[in-house]
Design a protein around this nucleic acid. Structure first.
Lengths: 217, 217
DNA sequence: CGCCATGTTGATTTCTATCAAATTGAGTGG
DNA sequence: CCACTCAATTTGATAGAAATCAACATGGCG
């Protein structure tokens, strides 16, 4: 599913298929950045995109990872911009921002769908605030891993104890408000404690119950 | 403006006036909480409301303060709930959630307005993620103070160097991901450094330039 | 006047950041 | 196939910011 750019399997999008443009980006390619006004909105088809904000001194906060099926372009209206670049090779459906906006304004069900997505994103953002403001390193990583596991399960339709981590340690650190060293140490401690096993490009959950207990502590 | 419950000065809301109910809450009253499904949406008319999430062990993260003019009820659809209670005595316009939803579905311009509000909230939430994940205590407080100053200015129509802080130190701490002691110490250090003066229920900005420099560092 | 909540200040601990170095691993070219 | 390189990751030693623990001050209010 979602493998073809036009088949967005969501009835709200059917009228949009003629507006879309499939586009491929190699890993590390920039989809858009904080400065330049955004002319497009996207739906991720393949790959992983990181969304982040930069402070003037270079500190980075990743505000989210977009996986296949995710829509990019909700918070783009405001001046508050963020950057997006490809973690892996990425395929997206690209829509002209203007065309997309016109279409939405003429299709209330689409507007409704967008609003629902926006409120969902907002709920996730608030969860992330709790994580960033009130959780320690181990809790952050446990939440992150289980959250990703659920998202991959939803995408593939089947859940797996192996969690693919296409992003690097630095990306995880910048998402969780930690340093790369703390992420590395904490993951390896979790492995030593037999909560997980670290595998190439991912981890395997060994003790889901204890991991959940830490995540929602 | 916004002092009368019905005069929401926003054309999208005019049809709603017959649905609204003005309600008063004393300080500390609970408007709604994480558990109970929410039957209403609100617009704040007077006073300040804190919105927060609680972890099982009692840790609290305040996800926002709602000031006069702010709308409550965007992220309520999802199961992800949060709590809201009155920091000061509060007056709100209360709308039945169902009636409000029906009205919105029949008025695309209202839906559009709601969507714009949701994306704006999302942008703010992302800013807050940067603050929580990547800023130190002084930067957090500088951002917080200047942000509130701008919001009060927008509400009253005139800017002031005195920033009203109706919420207590613990609330500020739980909003910024700090402890009450760190908030107290940091504010007092900023006062010692002549960035601000601490006054009853607020602070006075003495060196706006330096404060801005710290906030956006 | 004393009480209780709120806020401040001080001493110490702890977690995470920082600094530094070693290790791993994928990709390259000999 | 193997040595080499470079980036990513891990590991170790130390520093530092904020949390925690503990008094102490303030201030509104019955």
């Amino acid at each position: 599913m979602l493998s073809v750019c036009g088949s967005l399997e969501d009835e709200a999008f059917v009228g949009l298929q003629k507006l879309n443009h499939p586009v491929n980006f190699p890993a590390r390619a920039v989809l858009f950045n904080q400065e330049t006004p955004v002319r497009h909105v996207f739906t991720v088809v393949h790959g992983v995109v990181r969304l982040y904000k930069l402070l003037p001194d270079g500190r980075r906060q990743i505000v989210g990872f977009a996986l296949p099926g995710d829509f990019l372009g909700l918070a783009l209206a405001d001046g508050y911009g963020f950057c997006a670049d490809a973690v892996t090779a990425v395929t997206v459906c690209r829509f002209s921002r203007d065309h997309f906006g016109d279409y939405a304004d003429q299709h209330p069900q689409m507007l409704r769908r967008l609003h629902d997505m926006a409120t969902h994103e907002l709920a996730l953002a608030q969860q992330q605030m709790v994580l960033l403001g009130r959780r320690d390193a181990e809790e952050k990583l446990a939440s992150f891993l289980l959250g990703l596991q659920k998202r991959w399960a939803r995408i593939s339709g089947k859940s797996s104890v192996t969690i693919d981590l296409p992003m690097g340690r630095q990306d995880i650190a910048d998402f969780l408000g930690l340093t790369i060293e703390t992420v590395s140490r904490t993951l390896n401690r979790m492995a030593r404690d037999k909560l997980i096993v670290i595998v190439p490009d991912g981890v395997r959950v060994m003790d889901a119950a204890r991991l959940e207990a830490i995540a929602s502590a």
